[in-house]
């Protein structure tokens, strides 16, 4: 199975919770004790094993705070960009 990882940029996140709502695999949670520099509740990526880099969190993030990465075997060609089409 494809494995992925996301990074959430604290500078842009406003804590709306869309990423938590749209992650079908429950990889993102808002723990409630982490805050962004602006004082909003910060979501945290917790589940490295279950993330499959579907990038729905990055689509639905209104502030473009999320970047999605995918793990591939070294030497493979770059896979097709799943964000297009």
């Amino acid at each position: 199975m494809t494995r992925g990882e996301i990074s959430i940029d604290e500078r842009y996140c406003l804590g709306c919770g869309y990423c938590v709502h749209f992650c079908a695999r429950g990889c993102i949670v808002i723990p409630g004790d982490r805050f962004t520099t602006m004082g909003y509740l910060l979501p945290v990526f917790i589940n490295l094993e279950r993330c499959n880099a579907c990038a729905v969190c990055a689509w639905m993030c209104p502030h473009q705070a999320i970047e999605v990465y995918k793990y591939v075997e070294s030497g493979q060609n770059e896979p097709e960009d799943i964000s297009s089409g």
């Binding site: 500078r11 473009q64 999605v68 990465y69 995918k70 591939v72 075997e73 493979q76 964000s83």
Partner: peptide, 20 residues
């Protein structure tokens, strides 16, 4: 294993230094 970026802000997105 190698980490590649599959999705970030679009190319024509203007990234400011402050939140929107």
């Amino acid at each position: 294993m190698e980490k590649i970026k599959v999705r970030g802000a679009p190319k024509s997105w203007q990234r400011s230094t402050s939140p929107l």
